[in-house]
């Protein structure tokens, strides 16, 4: 934290020191773009959740949520995803420190936790299907599978992204000045996590008013 105190006014200095020519807000374009994108994603998942809530308890036939949910499994998978966010911040901190070994370890760990979450989701979907819940069966099946499916697809993209970063870090390393690339991946990963925080609460924890088991 030396440069900021040496030069003044801070914004002009920051601008002059940025790559390319300086940016108006003194923040990197990529990160600005990414937060904008996340604002957009709020609407994407907001609409999916709204669809789920609009039809909550309105299925005409079973299976209803209470018939299929396996509480323990989902709690564990939710916890795994939550902890992957923790590994993600450790990975970013390692990149920013220039600690290559830890970078590799935590990046891989995050991706692995993401894969475990996806595994749980695959298991859950299979179980539900076996219990008669399909995409077409009722409103619950339709809204549940599509919403959690899109979340799962986001996790899968995130895993692919993290593994790509892992390979880059493995092959040629990620220098500290490229830490932004990891930071942005982290923002995406955390966002996927907070979406699950909402889904876990709204879908699994709050009891569904449907009749059924």
């Amino acid at each position: 934290m030396t440069t900021m105190t040496e030069t003044s006014p801070a914004t002009a200095a920051a601008r002059a020191m940025l790559p390319e020519h300086g940016t108006s807000l003194g923040v990197p374009n990529l990160k600005l773009a990414f937060w904008t994108f996340l604002g957009s994603e709020c609407f994407f998942f907001g609409t999916l959740v709204a669809t789920y809530l609009s039809y909550r308890g309105k299925s005409l036939t079973g299976p209803y949520p209470a018939d299929v949910f396996n509480f323990a499994v989902t709690s564990i998978s939710s916890f795994v995803l939550l902890m992957s966010s923790y590994l993600m911040v450790l990975a970013l901190a390692a990149v920013q420190r220039g600690d290559r070994g830890k970078t590799l370890a935590w990046l891989f760990g995050t991706a692995l936790f993401g894969l475990i979450f996806l595994g749980f989701q695959a298991f859950e979907f299979t179980e539900f299907y076996a219990k008669g819940l399909t995409l077409q069966k009722n409103l619950f099946g339709t809204t549940f599978f599509v919403m959690t499916g899109f979340h799962g697809a986001h996790v899968a993209v995130g895993v692919l992204w993290l593994l790509s970063l892992f390979v880059v870090a493995w092959v040629k390393g990620i220098p500290r000045e490229k830490a932004l690339n990891v930071e942005v991946a982290g923002l995406y990963w955390h966002f996927v996590d907070i979406v699950w925080i909402v889904i876990f609460t709204v879908v699994y924890l709050i009891p569904d008013p449907s009749k059924g088991a």
């Binding site: 030396t2 801070a10 920051a14 940025l18 807000l25 500290r176 830490a179």
Partner: peptide, 26 residues
């Protein structure tokens, strides 16, 4: 955290003046 050029650190940029913030550590 000496290298500020790439703006990847938290607190970079316009808000960088607010150095009083304790940045989260591991």
């Amino acid at each position: 955290m000496t290298d500020h050029r790439h703006g990847s650190e938290p607190g970079h940029g316009d808000s960088a003046g607010a150095a009083g913030h304790a940045h989260p550590t591991v």
